Amino acid sequence: MYRGLITATVLAASITGASAATLDTVKQRGTLVCGVSTGFAGFSAPDSQGNFKGLDVDYCRALAAGVLGDPTKVRYVALTAQNRFTALQSGEIDVLYRNSTQTYLRGTTLGLRQGPVNFYDGQGFVVKKDLGVKELKDLKGATVCVAQGTTHEVTLGDYGRANGIDWKPLVFDRVDTMYQTFFGGRCDAMTQDASALAGAVATAAPKAEDYVVLPQTISKEPLGPFTRNGDEGWSDIITWLHYGLVEAEELGVTQANADEMAKSQVPAIQRLLGASGDLGSRLGLDNKWLVAAIKAGGNYGEIFERNVGKASPLKLERGLNATWSKGGLMYAIPFK
């Protein structure tokens, strides 16, 4: 009986130590190391000065602001589809924000933990308009560019076999090479997340008006962050950062008014922004950590619109990424 109690106590202590490891490392280092993509327009891509911009990048900035008090304290590590999970497993990065699809196998076999979905997507196809393709069955016998090591590669094969479409995959280990090949005319179609295809057409096509993203999608692609198993405290911070940004949109808290809203008498706003309760300290953070995170780039809606929404070159509709009260799937767990 006593031996079991001692064992349980030791186990609990070891788990607590593991969960604090990443947070302590980030604080001691003074910089967040964030894994992002090598270049997906709207999500993470370097601008002409080499500064990363995008929805995933804004999550990295918000996290750095909440944990370190400064959204610029981030070192971005550009990762391919093949090395993204290895980089997280090995400790090369603190968190992976790289438009990565969450799946059963990724959640159970990699030793990684999947955070909340921050973008609902689906696998689509882009073709040249003059090819005359209207629906997927028109792509029988077509050569399709696809990235290696992605869910897209697997789903392309599954869908083709299930629907009798004998397309010919042309597989690439680098997305930029895939784009060059497709827009160079070697492939009849290219498949990827529909949002990424919109970004590719907007930023990499010789003439965007010559291409069309087909309306059909062939999969569910819930995208979100990944952390390491055993880092429960750090994973909780990643989780509640997302819910905090969504809750801020629901409550009308923005990048511009976050400080003023912290004075609100509305209980839900007081808890979110640390004016009441001790929700921040329970994560090992300042109670006003979400004020800093929101001020770094705005609430979820602001981040979406700036990077991939109507105010961006991608001009995507909110769709499933709208809040639940507006017909979407974004729903924040209550801060109470």
Rank of each mutant, 00 (worst) to 15 (best):
F43Y: 13
V117T: 01
P313H: 11
L110N: 13
L5T: 15
G185Q: 08
G274N: 10
T203W: 02
A332W: 02
E232K: 03
T217M: 04
N83H: 12
L105M: 06
D188V: 12
L251M: 08
W234S: 00
Q192I: 01
G224R: 00
A311W: 07
L273M: 09
V212E: 08
P334H: 01
A332C: 04
D58K: 02
S19N: 03
T25A: 15
Y179E: 05
L136E: 12
K263E: 15
V95Q: 00
S235M: 02
S325N: 12
P267L: 05
S14Q: 11
P46V: 15
H152M: 07
R228S: 03
P225I: 00
G230R: 04
T109I: 13
G30F: 10
G157A: 02
G233M: 04
R106Y: 10
G297L: 06
I6N: 08
G17I: 04
K73D: 11
R84K: 12
Y243V: 09
S37T: 05
E317H: 06
L285P: 15
L329Y: 01
L136N: 07
R113C: 13
L88S: 06
F43D: 14
K326R: 13
L11N: 06
C34E: 09
K129E: 12
D121Y: 07
T31P: 12
G199Y: 01
A21T: 15
P215A: 14
D121K: 00
F40L: 11
Y59W: 08
D173T: 15
T80M: 07
A162P: 11
E302Y: 01
A21L: 10
L112R: 00
T101F: 02
F119Q: 04
K263M: 11
D130C: 11
R84I: 09
G280W: 02
V57M: 07
L105H: 12
G4F: 11
S19T: 11
D130L: 14
G122Y: 00
L251N: 09
L11M: 12
Q216C: 07
N229P: 03
G309C: 15
P215Y: 02
D173K: 09
S325H: 10
M1N: 10
V212Q: 10
T9R: 08
V144F: 03
